[in-house]
Simulated assay, not measured.
Amino acid sequence: MPYYNKVILVGRLTRDPETRMTTTGSAVTSFVLAVDRPTRSSDSQRVTDFIRIVAFNKLADFARLYLKKGQLVLIEGELRINKWQSRDGTNMTTPEIWARDIRFMEKKSVTPEEVVEEGIERTIEEPIVNPDEMFGLEDQTDSEDDDKPPF
């Protein structure tokens, strides 16, 4: 019987991503995504979930370079439940999403000051290169075993 584990979230980063390296030299970037739950009625108070996202290898480098606090992004990945034991011996579980794809949900706005400061030789109306296309992340396939952590 085939199994299916896919999660799609849209939310805002609560802080800049944090990157660390594994012992094998692979990048691991993590950040927290604030995702609003839909309300059932117009007078209901908004509820926000804070979900830990983890990206590996090239996607981790992409997140480190291009994601910033407050950005609205779409994350596609799979749910993983980490089981561990606290210092006092209590069994704990921590859910997180292992990202497979990250997409921007807002267009980057370029101010005239940024054009002058960065020496960009184009008009503001010209499209900005999508980092997904730059790194070829849209067609990313992992050659490693998906069931094993990459570190």
Score class of each variant (00 low, 15 high):
residue 25 G to F: 05
residue 59 L to K: 00
residue 103 R to C: 09
residue 46 R to I: 05
residue 142 D to H: 13
residue 124 I to V: 13
residue 66 Y to R: 01
residue 26 S to E: 10
residue 89 G to S: 06
residue 73 V to N: 01
residue 138 E to S: 09
residue 42 S to Y: 06
residue 145 D to R: 11
residue 110 V to T: 13
residue 49 D to K: 05
residue 18 E to N: 07
residue 79 L to M: 14
residue 94 T to N: 04
residue 122 R to Y: 03
residue 88 D to F: 00
residue 103 R to E: 13
residue 83 K to R: 14
residue 112 P to I: 01
residue 109 S to G: 07
residue 72 L to C: 03
residue 86 S to V: 06
residue 76 E to Y: 08
residue 82 N to E: 15
residue 62 F to C: 10
residue 113 E to N: 08
residue 128 I to H: 07
residue 35 V to L: 08
residue 12 R to G: 03
residue 109 S to I: 10
residue 109 S to Q: 12
residue 64 R to Y: 10
residue 108 K to Q: 13
residue 118 E to A: 08
residue 42 S to V: 14
residue 79 L to Q: 09
residue 15 R to L: 04
residue 81 I to C: 11
residue 124 I to G: 06
residue 125 E to Q: 11
residue 19 T to S: 11
residue 18 E to Y: 04
residue 56 F to S: 12
residue 144 E to H: 11
residue 40 R to Y: 02
residue 19 T to F: 01
residue 6 K to A: 10
residue 129 V to K: 14
residue 23 T to C: 04
residue 102 I to G: 02
residue 137 L to A: 02
residue 122 R to S: 15
residue 97 I to Q: 00
residue 91 N to T: 13
residue 4 Y to L: 11
residue 11 G to D: 03
residue 121 E to L: 14
residue 61 D to S: 09
residue 124 I to D: 02
residue 100 R to K: 10
residue 40 R to C: 00
residue 76 E to S: 15
residue 119 G to V: 09
residue 14 T to E: 00
residue 15 R to P: 07
residue 101 D to Q: 07
residue 46 R to T: 08
residue 17 P to V: 00
residue 99 A to V: 08
residue 99 A to E: 10
residue 3 Y to E: 11
residue 40 R to V: 06
residue 33 L to K: 01
residue 52 R to I: 08
residue 151 F to H: 13
residue 71 Q to A: 08
residue 143 S to V: 08
residue 45 Q to E: 11
residue 114 E to H: 05
residue 59 L to E: 01
residue 125 E to S: 14
residue 70 G to Q: 03
residue 130 N to P: 00
residue 34 A to G: 06
residue 107 K to H: 12
residue 126 E to A: 15
residue 43 D to Q: 11
residue 96 E to K: 02
residue 142 D to I: 13
residue 139 D to Q: 10
residue 113 E to Q: 12
residue 59 L to A: 07
residue 12 R to A: 03
residue 49 D to T: 01
residue 20 R to P: 06
residue 41 S to H: 07
residue 27 A to K: 09
residue 67 L to V: 11
residue 90 T to Y: 04
residue 134 M to T: 14
residue 10 V to F: 02
residue 38 P to S: 04
residue 66 Y to F: 12
residue 112 P to N: 06
residue 144 E to G: 13
residue 3 Y to G: 15
residue 13 L to V: 03
residue 144 E to T: 14
residue 111 T to S: 15
residue 110 V to G: 03
residue 91 N to R: 12
residue 143 S to R: 07
residue 28 V to I: 15
residue 93 T to S: 12
residue 1 M to D: 14
residue 108 K to T: 15
residue 135 F to I: 05
residue 94 T to M: 01
residue 144 E to Q: 14
residue 70 G to T: 02
residue 39 T to I: 03
residue 97 I to E: 00
residue 57 N to Q: 09
residue 115 V to I: 15
residue 27 A to L: 01
residue 16 D to Q: 03
residue 106 E to M: 09
residue 19 T to D: 04
residue 55 A to T: 08
residue 110 V to R: 11
residue 129 V to D: 13
residue 15 R to N: 12
residue 112 P to F: 03
residue 55 A to H: 08
residue 87 R to L: 09
residue 122 R to D: 14
residue 101 D to W: 00
residue 130 N to K: 09
residue 19 T to Y: 03
residue 134 M to W: 06
residue 140 Q to F: 08
residue 109 S to D: 10
residue 44 S to L: 01
residue 45 Q to L: 07
residue 87 R to D: 12
residue 79 L to Y: 05
residue 75 I to Q: 00
residue 127 P to Q: 13
residue 133 E to I: 07
residue 103 R to V: 05
residue 49 D to L: 05
